[in-house]
Simulated assay, not measured.
Amino acid sequence: MAHWFNTAGPCVPSDHYMIPASARLPEVSGLVAQKGYFVVHAPRQTGKTTTLVALAQELTAGGWYAALMTSCEPGRAWGDDVGAATRAILARIRDRANVDLPPELRPPPWPEAPDGGLLARALQTWSQACPRPVVLFLDEIDALEGRTLVSVLGQLRAGAGDRPAHFPASVALCGLRDLRDYKTAAGGNANRLGGPSPFNIIVESLRLGNFTLDEVRDLYGQHTADTGQMFTPEAVELAFELTGGQPWLVNALANEIVRKMAVPASAAVTADHVEEAKKRLIQARATHLDSLVDKLYDPRVRAIIEPMIAGLAPATRPNPDDLQYVRDLGLLAPDAPVRPANPIYNEVIVRVLTENVFDYVAEVPGPRAHVLPDGRMDFATATSPAGRAITLLRG
């Protein structure tokens, strides 16, 4: 499911507007039935965690599996200390199981084992004791790097041959990255996916996409059914156009209009309201947008984003893995040509990259400085670095 209106505290008037989880990742149930090990990747705040939690609940409620969504985030702090990181991850698995699973499906006490075999021994013990096949969604797998990531993936690969009686029947690695970038993070060669690699058990890589226009209509329509407040067709279409269906942005626009701008329920939400909400979000640069800004300082990201925004070809051809990495972060549209993921991100990126441009420009041209007396464009000044930056800022 994907909740909305929940970007800044309790929802008004309801926090139960949603898209069914099975509609967002319809392939998961089939992969689980096939005992598949697979990757689910998506940019942050696209509803990935919420969707996978709901899928785990649905699988368990169906009576066939003991399915659990857990996080590898506790292992981050321990770096290359494989034993400490693994114990932190296992503690989180137990905590989540105690909350999300009935007593008969919860794991028994974890057995002792050498640091490099802790995870495999624990999952083997749970799978043998559980009356149903175990299904495990490992969220925030990106939190692990180096030796710890290699160890976790290696143990999953080593145990996979014993599934489902002696090891989880199905495992999903969930995070920002696609399969190739996990190899890079683990210190491996992204071009070699065969051999004894811990990655050769992965049968599929799924990307959780943005909302479609129909899904945005559905979500906003649920608000209408609940409150009577209409979103005009033009408002819904503009919201989709500005956000590209990015779930956090779709939610944030609605939240801004209904809660912060306090458009009364008796008034229809119009395209003008959506446009105003967009401006307010960009100016406020909410947490989600700030997290994107942080990524712009990554050299891999900047080398692709800066020439794109300036309308120039990159100085060198980007590494395909770097391009895919920036797409996986959600900054770029997932398909060709290379372009910002949506108009809101585009404006935020431009503002950030041109933030201090005037500190280095002696004379700032006026609004029509690039227009000749006869009305033609003066391309010599308009295409200078300062001219491009100023045009981007104003346009």
Rank of each mutant, 00 (worst) to 15 (best):
V357E: 04
Y182T: 07
A169Y: 10
Y345H: 13
P299D: 02
T212W: 09
E355W: 09
Q124H: 15
P343N: 04
L323Y: 00
R327I: 09
A2C: 12
A143K: 10
R394L: 07
E140W: 07
R192H: 11
Q222A: 02
P299I: 00
K278D: 10
P343A: 04
G116M: 13
L353K: 06
D95C: 13
Y345Q: 04
G188D: 14
V53E: 13
L206A: 04
A23E: 14
L332I: 04
R87G: 08
Q57F: 11
R157C: 03
E237D: 14
A67W: 01
L329R: 06
V258D: 04
A56W: 06
T227K: 08
V352F: 08
I304V: 12
I390Q: 09
L149R: 06
L31V: 00
N98R: 15
L329I: 07
D294L: 15
P131V: 10
N98W: 11
T46W: 13
P20S: 06
L156V: 12
V357D: 05
V135D: 01
F167M: 09
R317W: 01
I305M: 09
N189A: 08
L289D: 04
V150T: 12
P334W: 03
T381N: 10
R217D: 07
V371D: 04
R180P: 02
P43V: 01
N210T: 14
G154A: 02
F199Q: 05
G195F: 02
A315E: 14
D15S: 14
E234P: 08
N346H: 15
F211S: 05
A369C: 06
P109G: 08
T50P: 01
G75A: 11
A277Y: 09
E73G: 09
W248Y: 15
P10T: 14
F240E: 05
I201F: 11
R280V: 15
A88G: 03
M1S: 13
T383V: 12
T270A: 03
N251A: 15
A286C: 15
F379P: 00
